[in-house]
Write a protein that binds this DNA or RNA. Structure first.
Length: 771
RNA sequence: GGGCGAUUAGCUCAGUUGGUAGAGCAACUCAUUUACACUGAGAAGGUCAGGGGUUCGAGUCCCUUAUCGCCCACCA
């Protein structure tokens, strides 16, 4: 909008536009311009302070004893910026929170960002490597942390402005970050509690090592890639009685056993025997063991056991008390063997071992098979299982839960973290939508193993454990006293999901204000709703249930709504590597954010994937303009009939009463549908009524009534007044109910409507209509 | 191998507890400078993947087959 145009809705009409309809606000005379209106409305709303429930109470918008409705925003990673997938979830939350706020609930929606440990550090490291040719060790811990911190700050700033562009009515005064001081205190507090309860322990185990990121990762951070691989069948030596098969001959330098099925007649006679030999320059000692893990039908029916470099082999080795010999180091290089393999990368060593097998006449067969290889989610590095001393959370270990509000677990009774996760959901205290995700959830829990939480990176919550020789100290603060300087803190940091798991209560003042009845924690926890993508059901949803159950004996949220993935037109996921992400800000510039919001919601059933299509967004830009023009028409047509709206002295005609009945029938279902999170249905109902019924039929029909300007008969005037009242009131109704979906255009129209329709200037604080 | 989901108009998808098949976009015909061309009216388009069952009645519930997608898990 240019400077010459009058932007004051209630002000005087500027000279430039007075020629036509002088009493209609000038901005209405032009097509709706979201790029001008949206930032202005966002600013107005934000500066009002009403995103903050405390302000709402202070200003009398919300009663202090009103029922509570709270949502925590799933904190976006500071690795980058928001795309339309985020926008779908955030719009859904905004719709619900605006609706609840208008209904008079004491609503709180807390924003924040996630430090995303590995993801962020590896991204910054990559950038530095590219620009300066330096690695993290060249920079040192302090300098790297500073660089990563700066990057995170920038990213956070972008995310904030994107959220504002989206029109998200989050309470900025409560913004949190998973790695800020308050959250760090919560993390240390929980860590210590778990440590003292014996649920956090340190152990030398085979873990998933990411040679690229130089850190361990959890089972859930692995993604699989299908590849073709060579499958080699061979014998360790000429004298060895059994042939085995493998895709990774280089690991066989670390073999300690061959497992055969106890029922396998072919190998029965060898079980228990031991063989010693040289394998490609490494002395190995192989024991034949019987174990049902070996399948008779697969390969030769015999498995070479490499306890140090395979999870399953490690488990088999445990059962048979076999030693563990590490032959691959953290850089994925061979630690043993003859000169042809020693020090070589695993891939090169593989070729060398195969060549040695051929030359030694031990290779029996070489075939091609499909194989799934494990890669690290964040760096893409091929995961190398290897033994390492790491921190774990024990999910199956019994402990006493002092306080429990979880159905099926008594206060003071013995339970496990796994049981907490199961009972919180099976007792229906936590609901999931769509319901079928319950099966996914339980299926995951059934197969759950201990959670490896330590990471060998610097960006994150440092493990609150100190060492002095053989002594170990776990505490919230470093040990003090005369020998304070002799204590050395653990170098590792925690899995980012450890801190995310506390998010529902760490954002609300826990633990420092937990006992204060006026704290956010006392008022707003547990939260009512979590809206998130189903891709993080294990990472985050399950971990929040675990942490909240363990720490508080309660649930983090009553309901989880899983949104589907928003994909591009080719059906691909948005990803940084594909570069197909769409910035919501781009949509706002092109079509307006209201249109973007509607296009995400409309026709998208909860949990189902959707495709983003500019044509679709354009349709809702047209819709915004349609309501705009409807407003113009009504204000023009009812000019001179001021004061009809909400005026009890104006009686409705029978025709208009019929229109009201039909209208109310449609609007009646809206609240229930939003309560049941069927917001896509509501969007459709509002769209259809507004356009197909109100504009196309009722407005067209009204033209005839108002066209009859010279007829001053009582009957004609009564008819005009009745229709004017109906149109104005219905417009008010449409604008109110549409506000959660399209907050900007509705607010702008609201500011133009006659005073008798309004009780407040800001639509977001208006009372939600009831029927 | 186990689990989950999808299959509805040319395309993208809705379709609440079973009760006469819906929208947007595209395409077709017509109208119109109108509150709005970011428009209106109209027509066209479907054996609801196939088969079987329950029911007075099935897109919806049950069984089965096929195709596609996703998740989990041991294939050494």
């Amino acid at each position: 909008m240019n400077e010459d145009t009058n932007t004051n809705p209630n002000g005087e009409i500027s000279a430039k536009t007075e020629a036509f309809t002088p009493n209609i606000p000038s901005q209405l005379l032009k097509p709706y311009d979201p790029t001008e209106v949206e930032p202005r409305v966002q600013k107005q709303e934000r500066e009002s302070g009403f995103y903050n429930p405390d302000v709402c109470i202070k200003e009398g918008i919300t009663k202090s004893d009103a029922p509570v409705y709270s949502i925590i925003l799933p904190p976006p990673n500071v690795t980058g910026t928001l795309h339309m997938g985020h926008a779908l979830g955030f719009t859904t939350q905004d719709i619900v929170i605006r609706y609840k706020r208008m209904q008079g609930f004491r609503t709180l929606w807390i924003p924040g960002t996630d430090h995303a440990a590995i993801a962020t550090q590896s991204m910054v490291e990559k950038n530095i490597q590219k620009a300066e040719g330096l690695n993290r060790h060249d920079l040192g811990r302090e300098e790297l942390l500073k660089r990563v911190g700066d990057f995170a700050q920038q990213s956070r700033d972008t995310i904030v402005s994107q959220l504002q562009t989206l029109g998200a009515s989050v309470d900025w005064s409560r913004e949190a970050f998973t790695l800020d001081e308050e959250r760090n205190f919560a993390v240390k507090t929980v860590f210590k509690k778990m440590y003292d309860d014996g649920l956090i322990f340190k152990k030398n185990r085979v873990i998933n090592w990411d040679p690229k990121g130089q850190t361990t990762i959890s089972d859930d951070e692995i993604v699989y890639e299908d590849r073709k691989a060579k499958f080699y069948t061979f014998k360790y030596s000429k004298d060895f009685p059994i042939a085995i098969s493998t895709t990774r001959p280089e690991t066989k330098l670390g073999d300690v056993a061959v497992a055969v099925n106890p029922d396998d007649a072919r190998y029965k006679e060898y079980v228990g025997k031991e063989y010693e030999m040289d394998f490609c320059g490494a002395p190995i000692k192989i024991k034949i063991v019987a174990d049902y893990a070996a399948e008779m039908d697969f390969g030769t029916g015999a498995v070479g056991i490499t306890p140090a470099h395979s999870m399953t082999d490690y488990e088999i080795a445990q059962r048979h008390n076999l030693p563990m010999i590490q032959v691959i180091d953290e850089k994925a290089r061979m630690m043993v063997g003859g000169p042809e393999v020693l020090g070589k990368k695993v891939v090169e060593a593989r070729d060398a071992v195969v060549l040695w097998l051929k030359e030694s006449d031990l290779l029996i067969e070489e075939t091609e098979i499909d194989q799934r290889i494990s890669t690290a989610e964040r760096t893409g590095g091929i995961v190398e299982p290897l033994p390492k001393l790491q921190w774990f959370v024990a999910v199956n270990k019994p402990f006493t839960l002092e306080h429990s509000e979880i159905k099926g677990i008594e206060s003071g009774s013995e339970t496990t973290l796994k049981e907490i996760m199961q009972k919180a959901v099976s007792g229906e205290q936590v609901e999931m939508l769509p319901e079928h995700f319950l099966k996914t959830y339980f299926n995951w829990i059934d197969n759950l193993n201990d959670w490896c939480i330590s990471r060998q990176i610097w960006y994150g919550h440092r493990i609150p454990v100190w060492y002095k020789g053989e002594e170990i100290y776990c505490g919230i603060e470093a040990p003090t006293g005369a020998d304070a300087s002799e204590w050395i803190q653990d170098e590792d940091t925690l899995d980012t999901w450890f801190s995310s798991g506390l998010w529902s209560f760490s954002t609300m003042g826990w633990p420092t204000k937990a006992s204060d009845p006026k704290s956010d924690f006392s008022i707003y926890h547990p939260t009512n709703l979590l809206v998130t993508g189903h891709d993080i059901i294990f990472f985050w949803v399950a971990r929040m249930i675990l942490m909240t159950g363990y720490v508080l004996g309660t649930i983090p949220f009553h309901k989880v709504l899983f949104t589907g993935m928003v994909r591009d037109m080719k059906g691909r996921k948005f990803s940084k590597t594909l570069g197909n992400g769409i910035d919501p800000i781009e949509i706002a510039h092109k079509f307006g954010m209201d249109a973007g919001r509607m296009s995400l919601i409309f026709g998208t059933a909860p949990g189902t994937d959707s495709k983003i299509d500019e044509n679709k967004i354009k349709g809702y830009k047209h819709f915004a303009n349609k309501i705009w023009n409807v407003t113009r028409f009504i204000l023009t047509a009812t000019e001179g009939l001021n004061g009809t709206a909400n005026n009890p002295l104006v009686n409705f005609t029978d025709a208009d009463l019929a229109l009201i009945e039909k209208r109310n029938e449609i609007f009646k279902s809206i609240s229930t549908n939003i309560d049941n999170l069927k917001i896509h249905i509501v969007a459709e109902d509002l769209y259809n009524y507004t356009w197909k019924e109100f504009a196309d039929i009722i407005l067209e029909d009204s033209k005839e009534i108002f066209a009859d300007v010279d007829n001053l008969s009582a009957e004609s005037i009564a008819k005009k007044k009745s229709r004017a009242k109906f149109l104005l009131e219905t417009l008010g109704l449409i604008v109110k109910t549409l506000h959660p979906f399209m907050p900007h255009v509705t607010q702008e129209i609201w500011s133009l409507l006659p005073a008798e329709l309004k009780t407040r200037e800001l639509l977001m604080t208006e009372k939600w209509p009831t029927f």
